[in-house]
Nucleic acid binder design. Structure first.
Lengths: 248, 248
DNA sequence: TATGGCTATCTTGCATACAAGACGGGTAAG
DNA sequence: CTTACCCGTCTTGTATGCAAGATAGCCATA
């Protein structure tokens, strides 16, 4: 709501402005991000825009098509599954390792769930998308581990892009109930249960996607030509296979 | 062994060369990374070096001290605990979600454990450090989720930096046995057990650190001046608090 | 009409130039 | 001897310029 302030505060908000735009479902997957445009919007030179892009690229949020442009990632169906799998692993591990819920934490979650309910009542789908992702980030924040928070924030951003691509209808009620159940287990101090519920919940959301609709209509063509079906990684370039111990 | 090839293959190996150097314990925490030096070593201009640095910064591997230089991170004791906590969460979540061990996977792990044993016999501490980290990356690779692999690779790099800072004596035997136990559980198909063992193992390793020795000898001074005790995050700058839903 | 090639334009890739700040050594004053 | 200050040097920060490639539209041709 308050971005696009062109000249004021010439920090490197570019990166977070974009992530924030994605987290709030204002930026769609596949959106073109022109270096020149961003540079003029933010009142800086291309250099800083490129820095932000590179950072976002290593965070798995944008991709560059050489000499064609930067684009917000459009996760393939395979990538989508990978993201959900990663989230299941991390979030369940996070919850299992949690100690207890402080009063403050309880308050945060309760008020968050209230917000969800309010948004559902208002029928504000965009806000709802945003909140549904936020719930998980909130939990991560409660865990108190900033590394996991950052990781999950980026995965949540990707998740939102995924849902913008593959989510035909929004099972908001189901998600909200899932969140309530998770909170219930946490409030009861049963974090093992919370972890299990979290996995279930993510499974449900993933199942609710229509991963058969291909946003890449060339995929079957691509595969019939036996080209690599699009590399799936959280990292861009040939980062695959970092020299691990044995160097040939 | 095969880096520092100055002119040949002017790709963007810079990033992975550094990560690889850390993973193999050849680059120590706190190492200064001069843009000019790297530029001449890799035969490129500072621009590309800076790109690599920025990427490594978002990966939590290097830090920049404004107008002073880039440095390989020196995790504080607090950060060290955060890293281990994150690894416990992720690795246990990963293992719990694993299906089964393929024959190929079994082979990979067995031969890896053989290598560990050989390195122990040879007393090659550097190689051992490298292998100890690699074991966990191998497991992640077996999981087949490239996102988790990348995350764990970076966390492993940080772990190695941590052990270079805080590990007084190397409990290689203990670690190796931990790995063997984890493998045993995996081979038996008991991934829940493997996850539990993995948590235990990481706990042991963390306990084996001497997190009281402060590589930042100013910390008590810093704290007595009530300055923030050094920000702990996987992300550098004011990335904290990405606009989540409620914008003000 | 359909097709092949050419060019104009727009994109990023990369290097370079210059500015701004940090640091260290020297020097002079106390 | 200690302290304060100044300046040269080295570092990164940022903008800009140019090159290389990609794309789209146009035109000639079959």
């Amino acid at each position: 709501m308050q971005d696009s302030h062109t000249s004021e505060s010439t920090q490197s908000n570019i990166e977070e402005a974009i992530v924030s735009g994605i987290l709030s479902a204002r930026i769609r997957p596949g959106t073109r991000l022109s270096e020149n445009q961003l540079a003029s919007v933010f009142g800086v030179s291309r250099t800083r825009v490129r820095e932000a892009m590179m950072r976002l690229e290593t965070r798995g949020i944008v991709t560059v098509s050489p000499r064609r442009g930067w684009f917000v990632v459009e996760p393939s169906a395979e990538e989508a599954m990978t993201v959900y799998e990663a989230r299941r692993a991390i979030e369940s591990g996070l919850l299992r390792g949690m100690r207890a819920l402080t009063d403050e934490g309880r308050t945060v979650l309760v008020s968050h769930l209230e917000e969800e309910k309010a948004a559902m009542a208002a029928g504000d789908r965009q806000r709802l998308t945003c909140l549904m992702g936020d719930f998980h980030i909130r939990i991560a924040e409660l865990g108190g581990n900033p590394i996991l928070v950052d990781i999950l924030r980026d995965l949540t951003a990707r998740t939102i892009l995924i849902s913008m691509l593959y989510q035909s209808e929004f099972h908001a009620v189901q998600s909200h109930e899932g969140h309530c159940r998770i909170f219930g287990a946490m409030a009861a101090g049963d974090f093992v249960k919370a972890a299990e519920l979290s996995v279930e919940h993510l499974d449900e959301v993933e199942t609710g996607l229509d991963l058969t609709t291909r946003p890449d209509p060339l995929s079957e063509l691509r595969s019939s030509l036996s080209l690599p079906p699009r590399t799936v990684s959280s990292r861009p370039s040939g980062t695959r296979k970092t020299a691990t111990s044995k160097e040939k």
